[in-house]
């Protein structure tokens, strides 16, 4: 287990904070770490900042994230990694599509050439909107409190997806599956970073697998061509005990 001291904390929304720390490691966009809340649990988390200063952007959603989000500068964090196949780097125009806290793993890809499509439940949960060049971002909210009312597909209506050299997306599986269906017959390059229950992070426990591919090791980023052969994607998954259930 690696340990580091939190050097800074930034509250982004009522339920999301970024914790900064020093970690001398080469991390690529889309990679993740397993973060340990001693005595509480361990959860996978994308790194939202991967420069000399690293950071996780944490949403409060369960016992471990509740404990982690309460940590303050000076306190220790524990983690292992980096794990997973990163997004592939491209030159040219990119489209970043993030749903909810999925924006955290896309954050390192924000650049002058990137256009952002941010999907959030409501206005106060929108992440990283101001980090895009002005005019290079579009927002959807489920409740219509900001931007376009509706889900990510509503936001795609006004975008010419063919004009981007690469589309990167991260978010809940149902959102990504809808996005996949929208894109699959179009001539686009896209990589989708999937989120699934993960226990080990190192390709042995089978909790996060989709059609025999381990999200933690073969993914979490998958190309459109890989997703085409995964009939479990967007349809079925295993619970914490290993019970097969619908993704919806």
């Amino acid at each position: 287990m690696i340990h580091a001291e939190i050097i800074r904390k930034e509250k982004l929304t009522p339920t999301v904070s970024t914790l900064y720390f020093h970690w001398n490691a080469d991390v690529k966009p889309g990679q993740f770490v397993m973060v340990w809340a001693p005595g509480t649990g361990e959860i996978p988390m994308s790194l939202s900042h991967i420069g000399k200063e690293k950071a996780f952007t944490i949403k409060n959603y369960g016992p471990s994230s509740d404990m982690l989000i309460k940590l303050e500068p000076g306190q220790k964090i524990f983690f292992r990694g980096p794990y997973g196949r990163p997004f592939s780097a491209v030159n040219g125009k990119t489209l970043l599509i993030g749903g909810g806290s999925g924006m955290a793993s896309l954050h390192p890809l924000i650049s002058r050439n990137a256009f952002g499509l941010i999907a959030a439940r409501t206005r106060e949960e929108i992440l990283f909107m101001d980090e895009f060049e002005s005019g290079n971002v579009s927002v959807t909210t489920d409740d219509g409190t900001f931007g376009i009312r509706g889900n990510v597909l509503a936001g795609l209506k006004d975008l010419d997806v063919d004009s981007f050299d690469m589309i990167y997306a991260c978010g809940p599986e149902v959102m990504l599956y809808n996005l996949y269906k929208h894109l699959k017959d179009k001539n686009v390059n896209a990589e989708l970073s999937l989120e699934r229950l993960m226990k080990c992070g190192i390709g042995v426990c089978d909790s996060c697998s989709i059609n025999g591919f381990q999200l933690c090791r073969d993914g979490p980023t998958f190309t459109m061509d890989q997703l085409r052969y995964m009939n479990e994607f967007g349809t079925e998954k295993l619970t914490f005990s290993g019970t097969r259930v619908s993704v919806h």
Binding site: G203, C205, D206, S209, N211, G212, Q214, E232, L238, R244
Partner: peptide
Amino acid sequence: ILDENGYTMRR
């Protein structure tokens, strides 16, 4: 090891 999901075992 990698044997909870039928598709993984099949792979």
